[in-house]
């Protein structure tokens, strides 16, 4: 069984069987409060009788402070059980969820589309996908990247991608993407969080004058 964790938007956790059957899922849509929520949500989805074999975690992009809570929890959980962590770009998980829903609905699941999430500071984060590959994973053709809010639509038009705004990343899809990558012998992301921005700091200049 695979435990999935994502805190790139809200706080989401799920336990799935390797084939994708969801055993338990719990989430909080609150874009804040990840540190408060993560413990109880984990306790809710875990069944002491069920052995977790891997922890899949969304690596972002997402607001840094919340994103780190999920990654820290995933790494510590895995350390506690002596099991591996499988990093997944959060947009890939969101795209997988959208593609599965499209297939179920009989919609065209090969047309390019962009997963778009709030990146704060008047920017969006986006990744462009085009269908699924033989491993059942979304094919990411662009991103993840940041765009100023008023430039995003032009950029997506140039890429011919339909815009799909996402406000929640399902943890079950993080786990499923990881499971499919594992079965195919692939890794979807490195262990580095997808911050997409360097720390917001300026180097100090000379000390300011205090006398007039």
């Amino acid at each position: 069984m695979i435990l999935g964790i994502d805190t790139s938007l809200g706080t989401a956790v799920a336990v799935i069987e390797p084939d994708g059957v969801v055993a338990a899922t719990a989430d909080s849509p609150n874009p804040l409060g990840h540190a408060e929520a993560i413990g109880d949500l984990l306790a809710q989805v875990l069944d002491p009788a069920v052995a977790i074999t891997h922890v899949a975690v969304g690596m972002g992009p997402g607001p840094f402070t919340g994103l780190r809570v999920g990654i820290a929890a995933a790494r510590a959980f895995a350390l506690g059980r002596g099991i591996p962590v499988l990093p997944v770009p959060s947009h890939d998980a969101a795209a997988l969820g959208l593609l599965l829903a499209d297939t179920v609905a009989g919609a065209d699941d090969t047309a390019p589309f962009a997963v778009v999430t709030d990146a704060r500071r008047r920017e969006f984060a986006y990744s462009v996908f085009e269908g699924t590959d033989d491993d059942g994973l979304p094919i990411r053709t662009t991103g993840p990247a940041l765009a100023p809010r008023d430039e995003l639509d032009d950029r997506l038009a140039a890429l011919g991608a339909a815009r799909r705004d996402v406000s929640a990343v399902p943890a079950a899809m993080v786990a499923l993407a990881a499971s499919r990558a594992l079965a195919a012998g692939r890794t979807l992301a490195t262990s580095e969080p997808l911050y997409l921005r360097s720390p917001d700091v300026t180097l100090p200049g000379a000390p300011k004058k205090v006398t007039a």
């Binding site: 990840h34 540190a35 993560i38 413990g39 984990l42 402070t65 990654i71 929890a73 995933a74 959980f77």
Partner: peptide, 23 residues
């Protein structure tokens, strides 16, 4: 620092729940 504290809290909760130990 709130953002720094949250990293430790996330890890502590993940570890405690994983081990089934009190926090």
């Amino acid at each position: 620092l709130a953002g720094a504290l949250m990293v430790g809290i996330g890890a502590a909760k993940g570890l405690a729940v994983s081990l089934g130990k009190p926090l």
